[in-house]
Design a protein around this nucleic acid. Structure first.
Lengths: 242, 242
DNA sequence: CGAAACGTTGAATGGTTTCAACAAGAGTGG
DNA sequence: CCACTCTTGTTGAAACCATTCAACGTTTCG
């Protein structure tokens, strides 16, 4: 049911979609594709013709520097859109790597642009959702620029937990997490070695435990305190355009 | 002439605007307002009813933390939109401080939403431009997370110079810059003391000079090299929706 | 079984912050 | 008009957080 996919539900949070708009959205869901963990979806620099709606698995978007280090911009989870900006602005400003094996709907640039022209309200909803995603990048910027390694890690995992909880993949107690310490390092702007130390410290202070692909919030209250995490910032208040 | 304002020209880069759409845009330009340097436009946390199109002066958007430090997300220059997301998502996730005295067009939330509903293509253009602005935040994230203080400063000033050149306020040689070292520190995630040292070092290495409100690129080529600055990333290629 | 990926720990190094002090200029009120 | 204060810029020394280098343990998988 297209009406109940996480992606559709997300859009409906911004714009009340008409049956005609739902139909257009449905027609975008043509090609289901699978990708293997670790193999890039889109190469940096190459201008790519397709975007994707993630239906299963985790992806990260990142930029590489000339010296080989990479910065992970964000992680995408089921219901998230990938590569929207690459298509819209016709520049691929970053790359996508599946963290796990994934399933995604491929949306051709031409189909997307056509849908945007035909049903501008749908376009609005999609761009709106994108704007929301980008609010998260702002939070990451603050996180990396202003918090020390411990608070940074805490904030990152709390945010991830909150996002996952929204799509039923986690709770206040914790969540399954396929990320390696290298992923964390690349996302938080730390070295992998330091990530390890920080995780140990958080564990020893009984704040959180990250082991065997599972994150447990041992003391959520103190963790929120440490990270100055804003529990409200992922919420939102229903459609803006009726 | 509304057709030639920097804001309109920017939108026309994404969507070819019809006379009717231009008319709607024109009607949004009702209230011209002035603000004084240093006094916040929008308080963090308060849900504000207006957005602004900046016509003169510089503004910065920032978030403050509980410990008092602040992170500047971005600077806005003439032609930029302020507070779009606050209005659209009805959350004020950051604050705006005029760096200089400014002039701006006030756009009421209700007028903006009405315009969005009436002329969705115009809405697209605006959201599109917002998406572009947010690509810049990604660049800032990489900048803060992965570059050392020297490269960070170089990248920041090169980007700012490029943006200013696009609206005729600077050149490859340099630009007028009203920012203090504290602004730079808050934007780059450094201490003000270290900003001072880094600027000295760049000056002594004859890469750039920042003195008396003026930035001069003494050796642009080596600077671009040092910062791994991508000269192309602010360009773009003409309207996407005809 | 061996290799590769991931995790863990110690010691040395280094970039950045913090603390402290002082200089220069702009604006203000007596 | 001058003292006064506030803001901004400047520099040194000590302390600290995080990185780098290096080594080893553990798990997974062909």
């Amino acid at each position: 049911m297209i009406e109940n996919s996480p992606f559709t539900r997300k859009l409906a949070g911004y714009v009340t979609l008409s049956p005609a708009e739902l139909e257009v959205l449905k027609r975008l869901h043509k090609r289901r594709r699978s990708f293997t963990a670790g193999r890039d979806l889109v190469q940096q620099g190459q201008s790519e013709q397709a975007a994707y709606i993630l239906s299963e698995g985790w992806v990260c978007s990142y930029k590489v520097q000339r010296d080989g280090t990479r910065q992970i911009i964000d992680f995408q989870i089921p219901g998230d859109f990938l590569g929207l900006r690459s298509v819209l602005l016709r520049t691929s400003d970053h790359s996508f790597e599946p963290v796990t094996d994934i399933q995604a709907i491929e949306v051709l640039a031409s189909d997307l642009l056509e849908a945007f022209a035909q049903t501008p309200r749908l376009a609005n909803a999609i761009l709106w959702a994108a704007s929301r995603d980008e609010a998260m990048v702002v939070e990451h910027l603050v996180n990396v620029a202003r918090r020390d390694a411990g608070a940074r890690m805490a904030h990152f995992l709390l945010e991830l937990g909150a996002r996952l909880a929204l799509v039923g993949m986690g709770s206040k107690a914790g969540f399954e997490c396929p990320l390696t310490q290298y992923h964390l390092a690349d996302a938080l702007g730390l070295s992998a070695v330091h990530v390890n130390r920080v995780l140990r410290q958080l564990r020893e202070n009984q704040l959180l435990t990250f082991r065997n692909g599972h994150v447990t919030f041992d003391n959520r209250h103190r963790l929120v305190e440490l990270a100055e995490f804003d529990e409200a910032y992922l919420d939102h208040t229903g459609p803006v355009l009726k």
